[in-house]
Amino acid sequence: MIDYVRGRVAYHTVDTVVVEAAGVGYRLFCANPFQWKEGEEIRIFTHHVVREDAQLLYGFKDAEERDLFRLLLEVSGIGPKVALAVIGAGSPATLVEAVQREDLRFLTKLPGIGKKTAQRIVLDLKDKLEKAGWTRLLAESDLPKEASRPGSPALAEAIEALMALGYNEGEAEAAVRQARDSFEDEEPALDGWIRRALQVSVKG
């Protein structure tokens, strides 16, 4: 089992990064291979898939992403390609929180996830995530959890609006988090959230 690869980023393709380690180039399928720069020395966590016709490596920036990817593979109907797309759609904390809340509406927005698969994710993973200590990840995360809860619909709607404008889940959450910090004690309407989130994301 290859747990991680440490080496220099040789080059990228659309869905892979090639890391040279000890004279060997390892091609790793990634959700976002361009998060690493060419020539950069990195440690990338891996999941090794062995098939009859191929041996494939999947790469992740940290062990949490890799471990969540592995849990997704245990869900019936989810293969490595869909699991990788789900991981790339947002932070692990976002996905774990959605599963714990049984938020099918959120889960069905993820790439390759329909209603039945979303129900299976909740059924198969909710207890496993709890037992594996993923609640600790949520407690330590600065994710704006209120953004997707009924008590704060403006935050959730702001994230959805940014995603409609082309932001991915992680980018939209980060922009809303920055906007929330800048408002301090204010409680703006939806258009206020969107305007401020756009402003801080452009400045960033």
Rank of each mutant, 00 (worst) to 15 (best):
V18H: 06
L95K: 00
K116T: 14
I121S: 05
A83L: 11
R43W: 07
L28I: 01
K37S: 15
V96E: 02
E169K: 00
G151Y: 09
L198E: 09
E169M: 02
F60L: 10
G88M: 12
T16L: 06
R51M: 13
Y58A: 06
K126F: 02
A22V: 10
T13C: 08
S152P: 03
E146S: 12
W134M: 10
V50E: 09
L110I: 09
G79H: 04
E130W: 02
I194V: 15
Q35E: 15
R195H: 10
G77I: 14
Y11W: 03
A147W: 10
V86H: 04
E171D: 13
D185M: 02
A89G: 01
R8P: 04
L104R: 06
E169S: 05
P33S: 12
Q100P: 00
A98C: 05
Y26P: 07
M163W: 02
R8F: 04
E146I: 08
P144D: 13
Q100S: 13
V49N: 07
Y26W: 06
A63Y: 10
D191N: 12
I87Y: 01
Q119S: 08
P80N: 10
G133V: 14
R120E: 10
R195G: 05
Y26G: 03
G151E: 15
E160N: 02
K37G: 07
V5K: 03
F106D: 09
L68M: 03
K126P: 08
V50N: 11
R6H: 07
N168I: 00
T108S: 11
L138T: 11
D67F: 02
Y11Q: 05
D142C: 01
D124T: 15
R8I: 15
L190F: 14
L84S: 11
N168E: 11
G170W: 01
L143C: 09
S76H: 07
E97S: 12
K145P: 04
F106M: 09
G170C: 00
V82T: 15
S148H: 06
G170R: 05
G204V: 06
A139F: 08
K109S: 14
A132G: 08
S141I: 01
I78A: 09
Q100K: 12
V99S: 04
W36D: 03
L28N: 04
R101V: 09
E140L: 05
A54F: 11
D3T: 10
I87C: 02
N168Y: 00
E187Y: 02
G204E: 14
S182K: 12
D191S: 13
D67I: 10
G114N: 13
R120G: 05
G39L: 05
T135H: 06
A161C: 08
L165I: 14
L84D: 11
L198I: 08
S91V: 00
G151I: 10
A132Y: 03
G88W: 05
D185I: 02
T94Y: 04
E157V: 07
L162R: 02
S91C: 03
V176G: 10
V86S: 09
L110T: 06
T16I: 05
E186Y: 01
D62S: 13
T94A: 15
V75M: 09
A63Q: 15
R27G: 13
G39Q: 07
I87E: 03
L107V: 04
